[in-house]
């Protein structure tokens, strides 16, 4: 999952970025409104965390421009402005959620998780898909039989993306875009390698390969 983090305070940006990366997100950041707006139009982000008080262009304006152009990027507003009329304004501009500063990181992670579930039509809480339950906090997956399977960082990211889009064909390039790993070369077969790891841990039939198209998460037919 790729997040766009827009925050003009450098200290807070670095702290948040670290926390978000620890939670298994790839984070791109912008610290002014114009950059943020530009980045938001690249269709590779799963969610944006948007500050309102930005230099050059206010967050609200950025959000309005995105929506005017039909950009449906899920947006969580993270701002010091916590009056209800400001929340109303934020939602009217097209925000999907609103969190006031100061906040606890756990709250922010929970909200992002809930938002991602919501936009992918998945119920809140633990992700239950086709015989697997993904604990996003502890980054491990549980089978129907109650067996806990530990996942590495990339495996977790990959599985989360697949579980959020079950029964859909997902191309390798999309997976590469959304599960960006700074250490790997994009052209290499890194996705194939991790798919293989997942199959080994969860069962071979869990992920189907459609040649030339991509992968489908089938899960266990109960």
């Amino acid at each position: 999952m790729r997040l766009l983090l827009v925050e003009d305070d450098e200290d807070l940006l670095q702290l948040l970025k670290k926390d978000l990366e620890n939670a298994g997100f790839d984070v791109a950041n912008a610290s002014d409104g114009i950059d943020a707006e530009f980045l938001g139009f690249e269709a590779i982000y799963d969610c944006a965390i948007l500050d309102l008080g930005l230099p050059l262009r206010s967050g609200l304006e950025v959000l309005k421009h995105w929506r005017e152009e039909g950009n449906a990027l899920p947006v969580l507003i993270l701002t010091a402005r916590d009056a209800w009329y400001e929340k109303v304004e934020g939602f009217k501009a097209g925000a999907d959620d609103y969190l006031a500063k100061p906040f606890h990181i756990e709250e922010l992670l929970m909200r992002i998780q809930a938002l991602l579930h919501r936009v992918n039509q998945q119920p809140a809480g633990i992700l239950h898909v086709a015989g697997f339950s993904l604990d996003e906090e502890r980054q491990l997956v549980t089978t129907l039989e109650g067996v806990e399977i530990k996942l590495t960082g990339v495996e977790f990211k990959l599985l989360r993306y697949l579980l959020l889009h079950p029964e859909k064909i997902i191309s390798k390039s999309i997976l590469t875009e959304h599960i960006y790993d700074a250490d790997s070369d994009k052209d290499s077969n890194v996705i194939e390698v991790y798919i293989r790891h997942l199959r080994r841990k969860l069962g071979a039939s869990v992920i189907e390969t459609r040649r030339g198209q991509g992968y489908i998460f089938k899960g266990k037919s109960a």
Partner: peptide, 20 residues
């Protein structure tokens, strides 16, 4: 006051996050 809030809340957030 809104500006003050904005100005004060961010340092406060940073300090809060630092405790982690």
């Amino acid at each position: 006051l809104g500006d003050l809030a904005h100005a004060l809340k961010i340092p406060l957030t940073v300090i809060q996050q630092l405790t982690h």
